[in-house]
Nucleic acid binder design. Structure first.
Lengths: 164, 164
DNA sequence: TGTAAACTAATGACATGTCATTTAAAATGA
DNA sequence: TCATTTTAAATGACATGTCATTAGTTTACA
């Protein structure tokens, strides 16, 4: 029986395949759990990430934002337009260089930032109930070996999630 | 300076936040690297997953497929329609129960399956150059603690990526 | 000084993922 | 036997992610 055969595979390729899908599943599940909470305050995960990056680096250009975001590459124009429309962000052209758009959180954006922080802290508590700090540190260090070989490590360093 | 402050954080919440984003970055990077390869043979990651699931479980209903896929929940009608259109999959109504649609790989689907396997094996070799088998096993076991608490573990067990 | 190159942002087009709703078929129960 | 409930699939609507192209501004260089 076909399903049965793969059940007993223990070759390294299988472990690697398992690794790949477990990382995928973990990310998706984590993302879904957070989306459920963010939805209650009327934002998406991507918007949450934008708000947190703005809180820390505002005012910031669209390009710089794009460099710091994990959720999208390039110029996140449409995501930002929707957030401007929703009232979370103020956007204006730079007076010094009209190529640049500058972004900052609005009052509403600051308010929702506080809610995001609470949601994230609750989510982190859930994770901390499952994993010890050492276990997470170990995973962080191990996966960093992979991440450091690619340009995404710049984004992570920019966000202080990876050391130099 | 705001960026500086978070750089020296070592509290557990920070480790957890780091963990969250490193998992996200790892999944996205892995996904992107694979997409680059899959693109060369004219498919997407989701289509690749569908083809691999069909190869192993065909013929299969849309609903069953949806249960086994990590890339989408519910009834993946549109993804399948595009793959039927592209010639990878044959689709027909069940004679026993017309609610069911049954799916199987076409000849073209079988051919591309062989290419997918090669792409995946190359990708796994890359991962195996970075991580030892023990390291990946450890990550698999650790993240399983999280996955097992949620329904996604059924999907993973169905795919033989999680033990009972 | 004027042109070309480089840079930033926006847009087009499409696939994907999510959530809700609708449609059609089968099962259940009175 | 018929009405109701359940099930499987399809569709609507929207946000997101990707890749390519376009438009406008600034910089560089001859």
């Amino acid at each position: 029986m076909k399903g049965e055969v793969s059940k007993i595979r223990q070759d390294s390729s299988y472990v690697t395949e398992q690794f790949r899908y477990i990382i995928l599943a973990t990310q998706r599940l984590g993302s879904r759990l957070l989306q459920e909470e963010y939805k209650k305050i009327g934002i998406s995960s991507s918007q949450s990430e934008v708000i947190q990056v703005l809180k820390e680096w505002e005012p910031i250009s669209l390009k710089k934002l794009g460099e710091l975001l994990l959720c999208e590459e390039g110029s996140p124009s449409r995501l930002i337009d929707r957030m401007v429309k929703a009232g979370f962000i103020n956007k204006y052209r730079s007076e010094e260089d009209s190529r640049y758009v500058l972004l900052e959180l609005s009052e509403k954006g600051r308010e929702i930032y506080e809610k995001i922080v609470r949601i994230d802290q609750e989510f982190y508590k859930k994770l901390e109930n499952i994993f010890s700090e050492d276990e997470m540190k170990q995973v962080n260090q191990l996966l960093s070996k992979f991440l450091m070989r690619y340009p995404v490590c710049q984004t992570l360093r920019g966000r202080n999630f990876l050391e130099k």
